[in-house]
Amino acid sequence: MRLSPVSDPRPFKIPESVLVVIHTPALDVLLIQRADAPDFWQSVTGAKDFIDEPFEATAAREAFEETGIGAQLGVLTDWQLENIYDIYPRWAHRYAPGVTRNTEHVFGLCVPDGTPVTLNPREHTAFCWLPWREAADKCYSPSNAEAILLLPQFVR
């Protein structure tokens, strides 16, 4: 894997990621506010660490890294949905030259009411639990909002 510019020794991000909609049985959804974009509220997202990392492992790892919520605290469900989208220009530098699109695999993680949240302050500065429709309205990303609007179909 080629390394990014000298100022950043980390490898380029793999353009395969997960979106994890963390929710309660009552369909309250956890949203987190990005540290690098305060107007950007979202569900948990993150790229694979290595190309062969299973999406389920990526989803569990990202949920824990970003919120402190371990997948074992709830039920992680693969929604068998993928979003393919153009990478936002503000984050294009994280990907190898010429990479412009990302494939995102969608999961739900149902956790008990009152599940504590511990944010990674390098990534997120605030969180809120909102009823699913309000959470969809608050999301910056259209694909994230669409996934939240599908939530009732996956908890029947």
Rank of each mutant, 00 (worst) to 15 (best):
D36Q: 02
P15T: 09
V18R: 06
V18N: 05
P15F: 08
P9M: 08
L27S: 11
R34E: 00
V21Q: 08
F12P: 01
H23L: 06
P5M: 10
D8Q: 04
R34D: 02
L30G: 00
T24E: 09
R10F: 10
L30Y: 08
S17T: 11
D8T: 02
P25W: 04
P5R: 12
P9Y: 06
V29S: 09
L30W: 07
I32S: 02
S4F: 05
V20S: 13
V29F: 09
S7T: 14
A26Q: 10
S4H: 06
L30M: 05
V20C: 14
S17N: 12
L27E: 09
I22C: 13
K13T: 10
E16L: 10
V18H: 02
P9S: 07
I32M: 06
L27M: 15
T24W: 09
T24S: 13
S17Q: 13
R34V: 02
P25I: 01
V21K: 06
K13N: 15
P15H: 10
L27W: 05
L19M: 13
L31C: 04
T24A: 06
I14E: 05
S17L: 04
P5Q: 11
I32H: 04
K13F: 13
V21T: 13
I14D: 07
Q33T: 06
A35D: 00
K13H: 14
F12A: 11
R34G: 03
L27N: 12
D36Y: 05
Q33R: 15
P15M: 09
I32C: 02
I22V: 15
D28F: 08
I22R: 11
L31Q: 03
P15N: 14
D28S: 12
K13S: 13
Q33M: 07
A35Q: 06
R10Q: 11
L19Y: 07
S17C: 10
A35T: 00
I14M: 03
A35N: 03
R34C: 03
F12D: 05
P15L: 10
R34S: 00
P15S: 13
P15A: 14
V21A: 15
I22Q: 12
P25K: 05
V20W: 10
P25Q: 03
L30N: 04
